[in-house]
Design a protein around this nucleic acid. Sequence first.
DNA 1: TCCTATT
Length: 366
Amino acid sequence: MVTQIISTMETQASNGPAGTGATGTGPPLAANGADDSKTNLIVNYLPQNMTQEEFKSLFGSIGDIESCKLVRDKITGQSLGYGFVNYVDPNDADKAISTLNGLKLQTKTIKVSYARPSSASIRDANLYVSGLPRTMGQKEMEQLFSQYGRIITSRILVDQVTGVSRGVGFIRFDKRVEAEEAIKGLNGQKPLGAAEPITVKFANSPSQKTGQALLSHLYQGSARRYPGPLHHHAQRFRLDNLLNMAYGVKSPLSLLSRFSPVAVEGVPGLAGVGLAGAGSAGWCIFVYNLAPEADESVLWQLFGPFGAVTNVKVIRDFATNKCKGFGFVTMTNYEEAAMAIAALNGYRLGDRVLQVSFKTSKQHKA
DNA sequence: TCCTATT
């Protein structure tokens, strides 16, 4: 089932230093002994394709950075969608929160808040909750859990079409022990007025990949099977573009970018396509599920690493000049075109899953 | 019956 995430920013949109540290033990100290509680920020919900470079560029625009790190998967190198920024001046950290928190980048709304001091006690504090009454909202769920500790994030999964709760949610506590207590206190219990008991357990850790997760990981990572596009997740965007996007449109792509149902059907066999896509100019490739603001450069960047690209074209609506969701790429050599298709079909670009195939229609010579 | 928040 297709799901949509409801997530609030208010939970930790502006957690101040006072709310970030251990209680009553004085300011938390970093490994080097410095108190970085007023300069060190955590940034969440970054676009998947943002690079360390771009991350640094964006936050460096506020003020001098002592250090910054975009956190990546150890094995795949893929961004995990969050990072840390340590400013030299606490005032810049404050400024970064006030100006960059809630910034809309592509399909994401980033969250910028003070980092809690790193500690083993705050790890693995994320709970998976199921069996919630469909009528229960996020606030209500938080109320239920807040008796066990400080909630860092909470979410309820809803059906994308109907918007109704799926009865499944997540609660991240500040401390693992708080999460443990919540499990003890709430697992198997019926919330007030509920017909069914809820299940409360630790959420799957990021390293656990099962079922759908594994599948999507496979597709998402398909490009990495080939030598070319290791840097595809670094689909470029310029800082000025970022800022334009961020401050420009009011209702951004979040409403438009959904996984297409066909996107999960996987990589089609390359056998059987026959001579589809072949043309005098080369092999024409159909690319579907591009974002409305996609431009030709996206296509160059995606396909260029696989070999000779002679032409790219984004199809736009005449009136709005926005991309209609698809485009064409012409590649000279069959092998390279096939490689690009195999690698990029199912490739996740932001929150979109691309569909890439040889063009089958006879219309449109690229 | 699984969103990705601790360097």
